[in-house]
């Protein structure tokens, strides 16, 4: 790890000031991806701005029938929240499936989505639920937020403060983990909402995407059987030593069926 200056500000204003004063400053949330990156000397920030001291970034609350979750809320807090369990159990299940217990104890929602790892779970949850990302500057719809592999719509000095999740009629997440890393080889979040059926896929492509073929089939009939005749194209899907594009395409459909079945 290269050396850096460490800051633990108390307010968002201080964060903004630190980011503008230090061009190579980086934000530190749970650190469960970022610290390993630093250890491998793959990043060389001049300053690390630790967000854990900012009270307004924490917490889970009900808002407009849905949920608003602060950016530094950990995966364990989401998975263990009675409120999440009651309003949006699929999201609690998704959080429970991230990493391992120790990673969940430190890893955060804001950190995960800001990093936008193509195999991360939360992006599927946000896109599947049509969530809104709230930042220090604005609100961004989930589909506009995730722009590419490890890329988001965030500007240099912009930070995620919270995510608002509307409550769906039904939802579930089904994940096929990489046997080694336990990241998603394919993760499918399915939701039936007032605005229609949404199927968001992570792990399979460079960035989370909506599987429109599956959505169309489910819009007519929200049941696993509705997907039987549908096939997911393998074009553009990831291909690596763990899974071919063809296998991933197949798994997208299988996981979608399982998610629909679980959503009930």
């Amino acid at each position: 790890m290269y050396n850096f200056t460490y800051h633990r500000p108390r307010t968002l204003a201080e964060v903004a000031q630190l980011l503008s004063a230090n061009e190579d400053a980086k934000l530190l949330a749970g650190g469960q991806t970022f610290i390993p990156t630093l250890k491998q000397r793959l990043a060389q920030p001049s300053d690390l701005v630790d967000l854990s001291g900012i009270a307004e970034l924490k917490g889970i609350r009900e808002e407009g029938g849905g949920l608003t979750i602060g950016a530094t809320t950990t995966h364990a807090e989401v998975a263990g929240s009675e409120l999440v369990r009651r309003l949006l159990p699929a999201l609690a299940d998704l959080a429970e499936s991230i990493g391992d217990p120790q990673v969940r104890n430190l890893g955060t929602l804001g950190g995960s989505i800001s990093n936008n790892d193509p195999a991360a779970d939360y992006p599927a949850g946000l896109v599947g639920l049509g969530a809104t990302v709230r930042t220090s500057k604005r609100e961004i719809g989930a589909e506009d937020f995730f722009t590419g592999m490890f890329e988001t719509a965030l500007e240099e000095d912009e930070i995620v403060t919270a995510v608002h999740f509307p409550k769906p009629e039904k939802a579930a997440y089904a994940k096929f983990p990489n046997p080694a890393s336990r990241y998603a080889i394919v993760g499918v979040f399915v939701a039936r909402t007032g605005g229609g059926v949404r199927v968001a896929v992570t792990g399979a492509a460079p960035c989370v995407f909506r599987a429109t073929e599956l959505e169309n089939a489910l819009a007519a009939d929200f049941s696993p059987a509705a997907l039987d005749g549908v096939s997911v194209p393998a074009d553009g899907l990831n291909e690596d030593i763990h899974a071919s594009a063809e296998y991933r395409a197949h798994l997208v459909k299988v996981m979608a069926k399982r998610a629909v079945a679980a959503a009930g």
């Binding site: 046997p179 080694a180 890393s181 030593i241």
Partner: peptide
């Protein structure tokens, strides 16, 4: 689960627990 995989140039593709399945 386990298998060390090299590419044709001799780079080890399974060089950590992220890719080598324990």
């Amino acid at each position: 689960l386990e298998g060390a995989v090299y590419d044709e140039t001799g780079q080890l593709l399974t060089g950590s627990y992220m890719d080598y399945c324990m």
